[in-house]
Amino acid sequence: MEIETTAIRYLRGDATSPQAKGPKVIVHVCNDLGGWGKGFVLALSRRWPEPEAEYRRWHRERARNDFGLGALQLVQVTPDTWVANLVGQRGIRTGRSSGAPVRYEAIDRGLQTLAGQALALGASVHMPRIGCGLAGGRWDRIEPLVTARLAARRVPVTVYDHD
């Protein structure tokens, strides 16, 4: 008896150019400081100004909204594409810090929120290996969260490894 271990599709390519038909959500991990300027966000900003502008506004107005670890913000960038800013990183890495900034619980909570929104939109989800770049996380800890929160709920997921 064969047991499917993952429903995640892996592709070589650019997560800012999702390879799918229909509604799509591109998810990435943001920090909780309002900083945007390194890593995958640069590729997002080259394509669309809205995700950065909305993230910065969300952070600036955080006293009046849900901004914080585990929060998720969907920003529509085309008629059928959204970018999900997921706050899953505490601070930023600065040389000799006390461990990686990634917060797995926050990523898990954000993915749970994303699942409901993706299902409501009828959207597939696209991402780089979230939380594994500047956040310093490990994919062997994040992949099971993506599987449990998205793939197990039948949300199609594609992970892109950049060339």
Rank of each mutant, 00 (worst) to 15 (best):
D32P: 01
P79L: 10
A53H: 10
A84G: 08
L121Q: 05
C30W: 10
H59D: 03
R90M: 04
D108F: 12
A118S: 06
Q76P: 08
G70S: 00
G39S: 14
A71W: 02
S45N: 05
R96D: 10
A71Y: 03
G95D: 14
S98G: 12
D14H: 11
A71C: 08
P23T: 06
P79D: 15
R46N: 04
I92E: 13
L74I: 14
L33P: 01
G13I: 15
G37R: 11
S97H: 13
I107M: 14
G99N: 11
A106L: 03
G95H: 11
I26F: 12
D14Q: 15
G68E: 02
R64D: 08
G99P: 13
R109P: 05
Q112D: 14
A53D: 10
S45E: 09
Q89A: 05
V75C: 07
E105N: 14
G68R: 02
V25G: 00
G35I: 09
P18R: 08
V83A: 00
R46C: 00
D108G: 15
T113M: 07
L111G: 12
V83T: 00
G91F: 00
V83W: 00
R90S: 12
D66G: 03
G70L: 00
W58M: 06
G88Q: 02
L42T: 06
S97Q: 15
Q73I: 03
L42Q: 14
L69A: 07
S45Y: 05
L114F: 01
E52M: 07
S97Y: 12
G34M: 11
R90G: 01
V83F: 00
R64I: 06
G70N: 00
A20R: 06
G22M: 14
